[in-house]
Design a protein around this nucleic acid. Structure first.
Length: 273
DNA sequence: CCCAAGTCCTGGTTGC
DNA sequence: TGCAACCAGGACTTGG
């Protein structure tokens, strides 16, 4: 699930458990998921680095290290970051040893079934690809005028534009469907056809739905768990995502499924226009 | 065989 | 015609 709310849930937990900690060892590396550095560099240069800040931009977690270093992590589709996991766990791709602020040893595991996740190790600034991201969809800064500008003249379906991280960073397939349901907008609408009032409505629902996802500690419809292996609650409050064939909770119509931007999309054709 | 939350890359089309 | 912007579709990986 890792979309913005799931990543934010993990970020908050890491910020708390890793405050004042220091990397002591790199015990396992998955080279296919490593970016912007060599395995050697990670193994040699990370140990000894302190953790100064755990930040986030869209779906990326950015760890600022002491000594001009950055770890930028993306959980992909099935990534998990676990602190001191109890179980052995399959699909472990990276293992880090840390020394907590009080000197206690800690273990951080990056597990990812599909290996779509990424770990960037850079100096001078976070991973270069963050430069291509639009403003954070939840925290901004952006407003309805910005969104209107990004949608203006576009013929791609609004859902595809919401998924494009260059416009707003953090929205994925689940929250896109939820945001559009709450906005009463059809995911098929060409972006450029939205009225000013519709863009305003959309601009209100984007942070509202993402904020609700954060409050509910994320959406565990499939693989997502937090750093303690615990599931979130948002999956119990879905209105549209994966609900094709079911009754619309707003108008009583029947939700349908279509493919947009190659992604399964559920919406209510009776009340989403 | 179909489907799946992520991003990246390519190739074709459109429009200035 | 030239070129950039735009958009669709496939690739990647593993499992249910």
């Amino acid at each position: 699930m890792p979309e913005l709310p799931e990543v934010e849930t993990v970020r908050r937990q890491l910020a708390e458990s890793l405050a004042g900690a220091r990397y002591s060892s790199v015990d396992q590396v998955e080279p296919a998921m490593l970016r912007d550095c060599t395995e050697q560099q990670l193994r040699v240069e990370l140990p000894g680095r302190s953790i100064e800040l755990v930040g986030r931009r869209g779906k990326y977690i950015v760890v600022t290290l002491g000594g001009e270093g950055f770890l930028t992590l993306h959980l992909g589709m099935t990534g998990q970051l676990l602190v001191d996991p109890k179980d052995a766990g399959a699909h472990t791709r990276f293992i880090f040893g840390l020394e907590a602020a009080d000197g206690r040893p800690m273990r951080l595991e990056f597990r990812d079934t599909r290996k779509f996740g990424r770990l960037h190790f850079t100096s001078g600034g976070p991973a270069p690809r963050l430069a291509a991201l639009g403003p954070d969809a939840w925290k901004g800064p952006w407003d309805a005028g910005y969104l209107a500008d990004r949608l203006s003249g576009r013929t791609a379906p609004i859902k595809a534009l919401l998924l494009d991280q260059r416009h707003l960073a953090g929205i994925g397939n689940i929250y896109a469907d939820e945001i559009l349901w709450w906005s009463e907008l059809s995911p098929l609408r060409p972006g450029g056809t939205l009225s000013t009032a519709e863009v305003v409505r959309l601009a209100e629902e984007i942070p509202a739905r993402l904020g609700e996802g954060v409050r509910l500690l994320g959406c565990s419809v499939s693989d997502f768990v937090d750093t303690a292996g615990k599931e979130g609650d948002f999956q119990n409050w879905l209105r549209a995502y994966a609900k094709q064939g079911q009754e619309c909770s707003r108008c009583g119509g029947t939700l349908v499924r279509v493919i947009i931007a190659g992604r399964g999309t559920s919406y209510c054709p009776d009340c989403q226009h």
